[in-house]
Design a protein around this nucleic acid. Sequence first.
RNA 1: GAUCGCUUAGCUCAGCUGGUAGAGCAACUGACUUUUAAUCAGUAGGCCCCGGGUUCGAAUCCCGGAGCGAUCACCA
Length: 499
Amino acid sequence: MAQPETKKDALSTNPREAREQKLAEMKARGIEAYPHKFDRSHKAQELQDKYAALENGVETEDAVAVAGRIMAMRNNGMFLDLQDASGKIQVFCHKDTLSETELSKLELYDIGDIVGAKGTIRRTPRGELSVRAKETMMLAKSMLPLPEKYHGLTDIEQRYRQRYLDLIMNEESRETLRKRSKIVSYIRKYMEELGAIEVETPVLSPLLGGANAKPFMTHHNALDSDFFLRIATELPLKRLIVGGLADAVFEIGRLFRNEGISIKHNPEFTTIEGYHSYMDYFDIMDLTENLIRQSALAVNGSMEITMGENVIDLSKPFARKSMVDLVKEATGIDFLSFADEKEAAAAAKKLGVFTETFANWGDIVAAVFDEKVEHTLIQPTHVTDTPMDISPLAKVHRNNPRLVERFETYINGWEIVNAFTELNDPKIQLQRFEEQVAAKEKGNEETQMVDEDYVTALEYGLPPTGGWGMGIDRLCMLLTNSANIRDVIAFPTLKPKKD
RNA sequence: GAUCGCUUAGCUCAGCUGGUAGAGCAACUGACUUUUAAUCAGUAGGCCCCGGGUUCGAAUCCCGGAGCGAUCACCA
């Protein structure tokens, strides 16, 4: 073992160079900067919990081994704050407990390094649980200085571009993404307990379907074929119900929409869609409402959530109101009283709501709803009985031929769930697809394509089915009190940096 | 895509009506061995986002561009 007897040259004042010099010194002393393995006995939080009752100033003989990133060094390295994924623990490096060789290692350590420490548990007279180190070990040398310890990393762009740094520095970011993981895990468990099986359907699809949105396109070289990235998982999932794969199937997966980016929209986002044989949309209302409620309870221990100034109560039954009734409440106008799109368009115009010239009755009702009602739905509300014109995959309402059995669940003014009693009559489905094509010819850019194979699947027989989709990112925003969708996505879409 | 705003040291930020760049933390040297944003003394550290222009002189004013943010439009 080399002895650091001779007075060393001063290290560079450039943080990176200084770390290179320390790396060289480690090499000279035969210390590995990136060893393969360290056997730790406890996570930081395990020790904090286990010794919660240990009184101030008490030393134990309990030997432990901890590891983590150095987040702070005080008194010339006498005190190291180690952070691991569970929490933080202080390592106490006192000269009375460390050999000369061990003591001299401290000068090689920097804030940001991953190190291990073996020693005994004690609580300092001032109350900080610590490991009195007998030995420390470099586990991974960090070559770059961390952001400032007090203010941390606040630059929003850098937090998203270098999420690892954000996670090192910001506990809230770690908490949010951990909670997201818990939410998804809970949802999966809930669905499995219902007897639904999880499936995966293609992301690459030659045909667009299941929603109205602008797609991303790509190309497969060997097949010399263009593909869309999926905008929904709906149609393949219902094919699996036709096949009788299971009474209920669900998919948690990424959708891609080539549209604007906002605090509520990321080009790739995650949804769950579920399809349940022999359910109708009333059953699905119960199912999704309960799922949202139980998810909140599972991750937050509460059915109350706070979004900005809004306190949202998930514990009571969600309100159930029809779209036209909500519009009527907000505007005093009953759009069901209008026989056609001309009367409806005139009424919308009076309300100051812009509608396209090709808009049909349903488009106009939806436009008025979007403008006058949507943002007011802070408390959970199932908005039911949507116009048929805008719902080509939903089954006609059992009491009104202009409407379908569909609902959208709004919370905090955001659409969280979209669901319906599935249309399973192949002839009517084909007709609806054809209406979409006709609407496209009239100028509506966002319509669905005819999926002939899907119609064929229906011809073999889709049982009465209830289906639903939920935006996982938005649910995560609600349950983590996040104002921006990017906070609940580990690597949100950013414009590539060029120059 | 439109409007407004932001961009200065590794990080967090000052920098006035234009006069040639500052602090704290991090780093380095030293003191100090029971600290908690440790403390004290000192040292070093800059493509002031990029490109033009005005000016004797630009971080600062003007024009163009980039990235980011907020609002709006489209959407979940």
